[in-house]
Amino acid sequence: MKVTKSEFVVSAVGPAQYPDDALPEIALAGRSNVGKSSLINRLISRKNLARASATPGKTQQLNYYRVNDDLYFVDFPGYGYAKVSKAQRAQFGVMIEKYLLNREELKLVLLVVDMRHPPSKDDISMYEWLQHYDRPVCVVATKADKIPKTKWPKHIKIVKETLGFKPYHSLVMFSSETGLGKDELWEVIESRIGAGDDQSEAPTS
């Protein structure tokens, strides 16, 4: 997709704040500081539209970014935030679960993991939860530029085995620094939102 326009729209804490223009939504889930903001910025070819926080747990809402008036990226609060209270974690969990279960505009969840390390318990729990509720998911293994190319297959194998990855899901190796995987990930996203198709014939599976 050629991105000609992108903008931050709203930080939402519940359905009352969600946009009501019915555009497709692509959600990003992952642990704090895994690189979700950098991934969004690389996809839309902007340096600082999505602001990466130096403080884990700083993002406490669903941050909506509109792209080309075609879709939204919805950046979730990062999980695994050590400095956030249990009550706040529970509140975030309820907010995210309600969104994932009830949001009709949701077309795909990008589960962002750090390719350098085996997926965390939180990553595994999120993947299993999405699978249980049949939510569409694509695993994005980022920070590939931090690993020698010769070791990529080994690290991808560890990611898949640790998650219990299902072959009918997509997995894209990505680097926000070099742009590796950008075109491939856009292809996955476009296939989910029916880009280029008549909307009445857009894929629903």
Rank of each mutant, 00 (worst) to 15 (best):
T4K: 10
E7I: 11
V9E: 08
V13F: 15
P15T: 08
Y18R: 05
Y18L: 10
D20P: 06
D21N: 15
L23Y: 07
A29N: 03
A29S: 12
A29L: 15
V34A: 02
V34M: 08
G35R: 08
S37D: 04
N41A: 05
L43G: 03
L49V: 09
R51C: 03
T55V: 11
L62R: 11
N63Q: 07
Y64S: 03
R66K: 15
R66Y: 08
V67E: 05
V67D: 07
F76D: 04
G78C: 13
A87I: 12
A87H: 09
A87L: 11
Q88S: 13
A90D: 14
Q91K: 15
F92Y: 15
F92P: 01
F92H: 13
G93I: 04
V94M: 14
I96M: 15
K98E: 15
K98Y: 09
Y99R: 02
L100A: 03
N102F: 05
L106A: 12
L111C: 05
L111R: 04
D114M: 10
M115G: 04
P119H: 11
P119V: 11
K121M: 14
D123I: 09
D123Q: 06
S125Q: 15
M126C: 14
W129G: 00
Q131G: 12
R135N: 05
P136Q: 11
C138V: 07
C138P: 01
T142W: 05
T142L: 07
K143A: 04
K146M: 05
P148R: 01
K149A: 03
K151F: 03
K157V: 00
I158C: 00
F165L: 05
F165S: 03
K166V: 14
H169Q: 12
S170K: 14
L171W: 01
V172N: 02
M173Q: 13
T178R: 02
K182M: 04
E187N: 07
V188K: 01
D198N: 14
D198K: 09
S205G: 10
